[in-house]
């Protein structure tokens, strides 16, 4: 009861009671040596999931609540390998592009590290997540940070998040009104529903493919009757 007047005072002053994190996750690109001659060749451009995440960060910044901050998680190994293949330092470019928006990438190297980064208790050091958005390869059952990069046409088990892994993400890490979006292909066909059931927060996902080819934010592929669903 004694805290009530203080809380009321703080809210009247417009100060945030608790800051939250907005999480943007960028998956990695494929290697051209695997994809070059395929009919549906992926990731001719290395930075599909970087540019889209940064475009979204720019949009979100405008409506960011006081105290909230954007945390940009980037799957590092795929960019390191693409760097070796193209002889271009992509990690440096990623950091430079992020710096223009005042963002610094937080790298993760496998799904275990990602789960650790997603573990929040609402403290100042680990604020809860009020929004999570994913940019990367996926199918209806899996987020594939690593795709056609270590092995041809697939991703390694420690580097993908399958629906069977969702139990490792706690719903208590999210605020009660947290919004989640997956901009990967087919997420709305199963992943979103399983996320809602297990993590406890709704997730918007695509039915059909998503297309990053125009740069910036992905859109639903034309002519496939795609839609965004919860």
């Amino acid at each position: 009861m004694r805290l009530l007047p203080i809380l009321c005072g703080l809210s009247l002053l417009g100060l945030p009671l608790q800051a939250h994190d907005v999480l943007l996750i960028s998956g990695g690109p494929a290697l051209r040596s695997f994809e070059k001659y395929k009919k549906a060749s992926h990731d001719k451009y290395w930075g599909n999931f970087i540019d889209s995440a940064l475009t979204r960060a720019e949009e979100l910044k405008k409506d960011l609540k006081a105290g909230d901050k954007i945390v940009w998680l980037v799957f590092r190994p795929s960019y390191t390998r693409r760097t070796a293949e193209d002889q271009t330092d992509y990690l440096k470019i990623i950091e430079e592009r992020g710096a223009k928006l005042g963002l610094s990438p937080t790298y993760f190297d496998n799904k275990t590290q990602l789960f650790t980064l997603l573990r929040r208790d609402g403290s100042k050091e680990k604020p809860k997540i009020c929004r999570l958005e994913y940019f990367g390869h996926s199918n209806k059952k899996c987020w594939m940070f690593d795709y056609s990069n270590r092995v041809d046409g697939g991703g390694l088990e420690p580097l993908v998040v399958h629906v069977d892994d969702l139990e490792k993400i706690s719903g208590s890490s999210f605020t009660s009104d947290a919004e989640c979006v997956s901009y990967g292909c087919h997420s709305g066909e199963e992943f979103s529903q399983r996320w809602r059931m297990i993590v406890g927060r709704p997730m918007v996902g695509a039915v059909g493919k998503t297309d990053y080819s125009d740069g910036g934010m992905p859109k639903l592929s034309n002519g496939k009757d795609g839609s965004w669903v919860y």
């Binding site: 549906a40 992926h42 990731d43 599909n48 199918n139 292909c185 059909g208 990053y212 080819s213 125009d214």
Partner: peptide, 10 residues
Amino acid sequence: RFAERGANVR
């Protein structure tokens, strides 16, 4: 069976 993968062919 679900061969339609990412169209990010850029």
